[in-house]
Design a protein around this nucleic acid. Structure first.
Length: 1061
RNA sequence: GCCCUGGUGGUGGAAUUGGUAGACACGCAGGACUUAAAAUCCUGUGACCAUUGCGGUCGUGCGGGUUCAAGUCCCGCCCGGGGUACCA
């Protein structure tokens, strides 16, 4: 064979490996450039043809930058923790580390065959203890820091404690879970455990109760995308919402910085947009709505401080005193944990409230704690509870057994209740607080809506509506999350009977409850403006509530809203029927209303973010263990010297019988002192959040990375990977990086300066048509003559949409006796573009292509397919063309006998022009990541040089460097044949000399009324007037003018001549 | 629904700033070489009309507009892909 790619590629891959050609040094006089790929999860299926697409692009860029004199960091590693390996382990009992190791070996083999210039000395694997030691270390840092909103950065918890000791928490402006105020004295008098509990509210990694998708049959928590239609994707088991105590990361603290940081990043608009939406910043106002006096009247008649009336007090006080003296065992235990302000507020026992004796009560938080023998379901709806709710008390119940068995969890539940009581949008004066982005529409409010979980519901519901409300709340509670989301268009809700007062109009407005208002956003309560919000509109129509119009879009007349089919969500327009803002435009109206509210103290500017804290626990085996142990139920971090905390051996990779995560199966899973270790493991994004930093100094045993290495490499200059990570990895990594930046560990506050998302590679499927009920297959063109069904056929036995019928017969036993109805002796298949999948028989293996055509051809072909960022079908049809080109390129340097035929003759101006045009084009194309057009221009130049029979060193030597990033093996071989002893990898990129490109003539297209008719050549320096004269005199021009005089002649130098008739 | 993308020959795509639409490649058709095949090379290849030659008309999802000139800019739609979803 003339061009023996097999031998050449093997030779150079071995050379690069032996010489460590692509090893990057952390010190260099050269400027740095950091090119990174999203590292792969090594699945059992091996490398997919989609993977190399991005890797080839980044490799071309990395190699180009080396030629341009940069010190390039281009590492690769493995995102090795993941579900498939764990799933396989559960099924087969094989340790996931074994499968993972095997898959990595296969990936490495495949990667090596494509000729990437990775610095393998820096390889990382997220499941390697030497690597995850630093993931654990970072977790400890997250635990030991809190977010100070005043300085807008993470600061040390130790320093925070010092402030608490000196002045309590009143002056702290933190991003934290709502916490009651305490003084220095109160802090200092708290127990260690109480202090730890409070600190969890501040820590950036913290434990909290979170709603999760719990699957009892699988014994695990599922991610949202693992649940479809309320059932688990795997197994189809029922999934329920359940509250679990889990680790979370306070990413919400960074919401504003994550949003602002996008501004200066060189990322595609679509990814920036996705992240912006994910962060979901809304600017608006919080507004207080007073409740009407009717519903607070009963409380007003009561002297302050009394919790009941005189009659009941005398009737019950002796009972209460007696019960205080003779507490049950459960009461004793609970009292021990709540007395003396231990929960941050005063709790009394056996207190007369209304006409009952409450077991325990916190008067300041209006919380009653009842202890019963058992809890029946209807207890919460009982008459006494409803009465208590009416006067603002909420009731939390426990059984004797719960208290005796697990006081820790009981206290946690009480604590949570106390904390959320403060969060509640009811304040002591009986006001409802809502969040709105459109304060300008406040004159158009015709009702209020509370979420079904709203604290205030029990308090405000009138006795007439009590039953209806209770029914509705029960209904929403039993409705699954899935139903709620899929039935978005169904309007449901109930009236509470209560009214609020619009602070601007003093009108009474009814308060409703509906599950279209979400508990987790804003205050869980809204002011409804039906004329200008589609959801409010639907609700108003359904319940026949008024729809007053208050915004008039520009250029419209006011009209009767009764005729509207939908709301006008007018973001622009003029305020009408709106008191003092009538006549203002929307923007001014918003400002005027907020100013008014702030002045009167009934509202304030407020910003809300949709971004939620990231749940960081997984009830899985195959992940990083947390460096956490528990003492008295409180989490503590291991000492750094004990890292890494290695993943323990377990007998089975399943949850325990009691539903604990797999790590609970491990023997001796506790510290030396005997404290139990955390049984959850970290999620997938833990290991991938800072891997780009670790590459800078991958084997540092003392630090996550050295200051010097980070100062040199800074951050990633070019990051290539899939867009599917937009709201996962790409946002967590930015958060993680900003945190390390706050700690002064890394020098850049953004990790990835430029991001390119390679498009998805789709599959191209082929179909055959079987005549129904037979084993006869009909060619595509004749299928309409029969009743047929289409069947996917393996694309590997179809060439150019022509089926290899023999191979088809052999492919499945069923087809062994297949008969065919052919067209012109051929069986034509149909095709379509679908996702690439085994089940659709359209998977293409890159290995086969490397064997058949070589890595250089594969590399160039993947680039030639089309723009990097666009999704495109994978079709190997065109690879022949690229293969032909590569051999043609080889022949520029070789004669018929395949001997080098490069001469030292001086190059002609035409040859130099081809070379320099190519230099210019290739350089431009690489720099704007247009690799497909670069391959085209290589083809054009090669065609031209072949035509010129050009074999001159002056041309071919620079040309080898130009093609080296694309076809590195070929380039190395040619470089060596040209007499060089060093690798071509660091040869200087050819210098462009524009002088060779100067054209002294230009072939003008001559157009009439914009339509090109013919061409004329002019010297480059001919004056415009002369061109006009010559063109108009031309016979062809005369023909098109038809004797008329041109109205106008437009001549754009070196572009076009246009004659207007 | 909202947001982001994209829509150009039989196919992948090119046209970078408004200036000759379809570069380059695949496929197809015809031809050369060959006993034959592979490989290689040559010619043609958007559609329609005219082909004896010169040619002509239409054409970048659809309908309008701006301009001497629109695939490219503006307005209104249609379709595909991705993201997101009662976020007030």
């Amino acid at each position: 064979m003339d061009y023996n790619f097999n031998e050449i590629e093997k030779k150079w891959q071995a050379y690069w490996k032996a010489k460590k050609t692509y090893k990057a040094e952390n010190k260099s006089d050269k400027p740095k450039y950091y090119v990174l790929d999203m590292f792969p999860y090594p699945s059992g299926a091996g490398l997919h043809v989609g993977h190399p697409l991005g890797y080839i692009a980044s490799d071309i860029y990395a190699r180009y930058k080396r030629h341009k004199g940069f010190n390039v960091l281009h590492p690769m590693g493995y995102d090795a923790y993941g579900l498939p390996a764990e799933q396989y382990a559960i099924q087969t009992g094989q340790h996931p580390a074994v499968t993972t190791e095997k898959n990595i070996a296969r990936y490495r083999e495949q990667l090596d065959k494509i000729g990437f210039s990775f610095d393998w000395d820096r390889e990382v694997r997220t499941c390697d203890p030497d690597y995850y030691k630093w993931t654990q270390w970072t977790f400890i840092q997250l635990f030991n820091h809190w977010y100070n909103k005043n300085t807008d950065k993470a600061e040390s918890i130790a320093e925070l404690v010092k402030i608490f000791e000196k002045e309590g928490n009143r002056n702290i402006n933190a991003s934290c879970t709502e916490t009651a105020f305490f003084t220095a004295e109160e802090w200092n008098s708290k127990t260690e455990k109480q202090q730890q509990e409070i600190l969890l509210n501040y820590r950036i990694s913290y434990l909290s109760d979170t709603m999760v998708n719990w699957c009892p049959q699988l014994g695990t928590v599922l991610a949202n995308d693992e649940v479809v239609g309320g059932l688990s994707v795997r197994g189809g088991y029922a999934v329920e919402r359940k509250s679990m105590r889990q680790w979370s990361l306070r990413i919400s603290a960074y919401a504003e910085r994550l949003l602002q940081g996008l501004e200066n990043l060189d990322w595609s608009d679509s990814i920036k947009e996705i992240q912006k939406n994910w962060i979901g910043k809304s600017v608006g106002a919080e507004v207080k709505f007073c409740l009407t006096p009717v519903h607070t009247k009963s409380e007003e008649t009561k002297p302050h401080g009394y919790t009941t009336n005189t009659t009941d007090w005398y009737a019950l006080r002796n009972d209460a005193r007696k019960m205080r003296k003779e507490p049950s065992e459960a009461e004793k235990i609970l009292w021990k944990s709540v007395k003396d302000n231990q929960l941050g507020c005063k709790i009394r026992r056996q207190q007369v409230i209304f006409n009952n004796i409450a077991d325990f009560v916190c008067l300041s938080k209006k919380l009653i704690i009842q202890i019963d023998e058992s809890i029946s379901k209807n207890e919460n709806e009982s008459a006494s509870v409803v009465e208590l709710n009416k006067i603002g008390f909420s009731v939390i119940r426990f059984t004797n057994k719960e208290i005796i068995d697990n006081i820790e969890s009981v206290i946690e539940k009480i604590k949570l209740k106390i904390d959320t009581k403060i969060l509640s949008s009811v304040n002591e004066q009986g006001e409802l607080i809502i969040f709105t982005t459109r304060p300008d529409t406040i004159f158009g409010v015709s009702f209020m809506v509370l979420c079904p979980e709203h604290e205030m519901i029990a308090q405000i519901t009138t006795s007439e509506q009590k039953q209806a409300v209770a029914d509705y709340l029960l209904w929403t509670k039993n409705r699954s999350e899935r139903e709620r989301q899929s039935e978005v268009n169904t309007v449901t809700g109930v009236f509470t009977g209560a009214y609020a007062i619009n602070p601007l109009t003093n009108q009474e407005i009814p308060i409703w409850i509906s599950d279209y208002v979400l508990a987790g956003y804003g205050t869980g309560a809204i002011m409804a403006v039906p004329a200008h919000d589609s959801r409010d509109f639907a609700f108003a129509r359904h319940f026949k509530l008024p729809i007053p119009q208050v915004i008039l879009p520009f250029g419209e007349e006011a009209e009767d809203t009764a005729n509207w089919k939908e709301s006008k969500d007018s973001k622009e327009g003029i305020c009408i029927n709106s008191g003092f803002i009538t006549g203002m435009n929307v923007k001014d109206g918003i400002k005027a209303v907020i100013d008014f509210l702030e002045e009167k103290g009934i509202g304030k500017r407020m910003i809300n973010y949709r971004l939620r804290d990231a749940i960081f626990s997984r009830q899985r085996y195959w992940g990083e263990p947390f460096p956490v142990y528990y003492k008295e139920g409180m989490p503590y971090m291991l000492d750094e010297t004990e890292l890494p905390l290695e993943l323990p051996a377990v007998d089975k990779y399943l949850p325990t019988e009691s539903g604990e995560p797999p790590l609970a199966r491990a023997e001796n899973w506790h510290t030396q002192e005997g404290y139990p270790l955390e049984c959850n493991t970290m999620p997938g994004f833990a290991g991938s959040s800072a891997y780009y930093l670790r590459y800078m100094d991958a084997h540092n045993e003392k630090e996550i990375f050295s200051k010097e290495a980070n100062t040199y490499w800074q951050n990633v200059d070019l990051y290539i990977g899939g867009a599917e990570h937009a709201t996962g990895h790409l946002i967590y990594a930015r958060f993680w990086n900003k945190f390390l930046y706050d700690l002064g560990l890394c020098v850049k506050d953004e990790p990835f300066q430029k991001l390119i998302n390679q498009g998805m590679i789709q599959g191209r499927s082929n179909f055959v048509y079987r005549i129904v009920g037979t084993n006869k297959f009909v060619s595509s063109g004749l299928k309409n003559e029969y009743e047929t069904q289409s069947i996917h056929v393996d694309v590997n036995i179809v060439d150019n949409d022509i089926l290899d019928t023999e191979k088809f017969r052999l492919s499945l036993p069923d087809y062994a006796n297949a008969e065919f109805i052919l067209e012109n002796g051929k069986y034509h298949c149909d095709w379509s573009v679908e996702k690439m999948s085994k089940s659709l028989y359209n998977v293409q293996n890159p290995d086969d292509l490397v064997v058949r055509y070589g890595a250089d051809t594969l590399r160039m072909y993947e680039m030639f397919l089309g723009p990097l960022e666009q999704s495109k079908p994978w079709d190997t049809k065109g690879i022949e063309g690229v293969f032909r080109f590569i051999r043609k390129f080889w022949k520029l340097y070789h004669n018929e006998e395949n001997n080098l035929c490069v001469t030292d003759e001086a190059a002609s101006p035409q040859e130099l022009k081809v070379l320099h045009r190519t230099i210019k084009k290739i350089q431009d194309d690489i720099e704007r990541f247009s690799f497909n057009t670069a391959v085209s221009s290589f083809m054009i130049s090669t065609n031209e040089l072949t035509e010129m029979k050009s074999h001159k060193r002056d041309i071919l030597q620079p040309l080898a460097i130009l093609i080296s990033p694309y076809a590195p093996h070929l380039a190395e071989e040619l470089w060596q044949l040209l007499g060089h002893n060093e690798s071509i990898s660091f040869a200087a990129f050819p210098e462009l000399n524009e002088a060779y490109l100067v054209e002294n003539t230009f072939n003008y297209p001559i157009s009439f009324n914009g339509k090109t008719r013919f061409q004329m050549e002019f010297a480059a320096d001919v004056p415009i007037a002369e061109i006009e004269k010559t063109v108009l005199a031309h016979a062809d021009a005369q023909k098109w003018l038809e004797g008329k005089l041109p109205k106008k002649v437009i001549i754009v130098p070196k572009k076009i001549v246009n004659i207007v008739i």
